[in-house]
């Protein structure tokens, strides 16, 4: 059990981690790099199976044990099955019932639902800004003033154009400086974590520990 659950995944991570690294930096292996890229959709395909299995297990348990939540889990299951079946049949078709059913589900259910979830942010941000954005110290005042200028600047016109120019400057100078620092930090962090995973020092992805 220890071999299948720990040693083999660890060995595969080390081998493929080093291999991926070598393929990237040795120009002679460029052909193999393309093969590696082609393998990615296969791995992605398996991740969908794992995702569906995990979702099924989670909601099946909920249907059995939590009567108050049962309805939502049933809706999730029904949506999953309906979209999968209609998509599998309708997507490759040129025309016909399933094609138009799939298109309607996509355009009038899936797209508005996703856009709605994203637009809910506006409501949460408004409430959070109203409650939490307070002038308590000089640094929070600075943040508040910058926020005001950028918000006004994005919609500036006529006599308020000064905010537009100030907003452009904030986005092009302080924001870029901060973002560059952040990106360098993130890059170094990713590198350090990748090295730790490849060398087997970081093993939390295997579960436990």
């Amino acid at each position: 059990m220890n071999f299948w659950k720990r040693r083999l995944p660890l060995a595969l991570t080390v081998i493929y981690g080093l291999l991926g690294f070598t393929l990237q930096i040795v120009p002679a292996f460029k052909g193999f790099l393309d093969i590696q890229n082609m393998w990615m959709p296969i791995i992605f395909g398996f991740s969908i199976i794992i995702g569906v299995a995990s979702l099924t297990k989670y909601h099946a348990t909920k249907i059995r044990r939590e009567p108050e939540e049962r309805l939502f889990s049933i809706i999730t299951f029904a949506s999953l099955i309906l979209m999968a079946v209609v998509g599998l049949i309708g997507m490759p078709q040129q025309a016909g019932f399933f094609k138009s059913f799939y298109q309607n589900l996509f355009n009038y259910v899936y797209v508005p639902l996703q856009a709605t979830i994203f637009s809910l942010l506006a409501f949460y941000i408004t409430s959070a800004a109203y409650r939490a954005f307070k002038v308590s110290e000089w640094i929070s005042t600075l943040l508040l003033v910058s926020g005001f200028i950028v918000m006004l600047g994005r919609v500036a016109f006529g006599p308020f154009m000064i905010f537009g120019e100030l907003s452009e400057w904030i986005m092009a100078v302080p924001t870029v400086a901060a973002m560059r620092g952040l990106m360098i930090g993130i890059g170094l962090g990713i590198m350090a974590t990748a090295i730790k995973i490849i060398l087997g020092i970081e093993r939390s992805y295997l579960g436990g520990e």
Partner: peptide
Amino acid sequence: GMSSQFGAHIYVIILIIIGNIGYF
């Protein structure tokens, strides 16, 4: 969309000002 965005930005600014007056 920009006209809605204009309304939303001004509304957020007004709310923040109101919150800060109360806080002060």
